[in-house]
């Protein structure tokens, strides 16, 4: 408990110090609970998520960093490895391949990389996975782009 708190505090200080280091990621810690974080990540360019801003929520376990944080998308996203309803993410480093050397910041980077490189063979969103697996890249991209517009684009005005 104490160890996870200390480590999260280090991460917090690091985030404050390097706020502008990675303009695609904006990590924010909950005001009253250091185990709760949110992040805003920008959809990577040259993907159907480009132009969108996606919100992630982190629930950090007390055994962190020996156990991975639980992360999910709060913003709706059409992606083979993200559950369409719950926002749950299928990513190896959040499960078996977790290493305590990962940080919340690097997890965000891994999620951005996953957005750019979907893995249709281990889908949480079967519709999305099936489109890609059947070779209908255009179909996948237009669906993903539509949801980016609908759910992830900053409202004008």
């Amino acid at each position: 408990m104490q160890a996870s708190r200390a480590r999260l505090f280090k991460e917090y200080k690091e985030v404050q110090r390097e706020k502008s280091a990675d303009p695609d990621i904006q990590l924010v810690c909950d005001d009253s609970n250091i185990f709760k974080w949110t992040a805003l990540i920008k959809g990577p360019s040259e993907t159907p998520y480009e132009g969108g801003v996606f919100q992630l929520v982190f629930a950090v376990p007390e055994q962190y960093p020996l156990q991975p944080p639980q992360v999910r998308f709060l913003t709706k996203i059409f992606h083979p490895n993200v559950h369409f309803k719950t926002g749950e993410i299928c990513l190896d480093i959040l499960k078996n391949a977790w290493s305590p050397a990962w940080t919340l910041q690097s997890v965000c980077r891994a999620i951005i990389a996953l957005m750019a490189h979907p893995e249709p063979d281990s889908p949480l969103n079967c519709d999305s996975g099936n489109l890609l697996r059947s070779g209908d890249v255009r179909g996948y991209q237009s669906m993903a782009r539509m949801y980016t517009r609908l759910a992830a684009s900053p409202k004008i005005g």
Partner: peptide, 8 residues
Amino acid sequence: NPCPICLS
């Protein structure tokens, strides 16, 4: 060069 696990 902090410890990669505790970052201290």
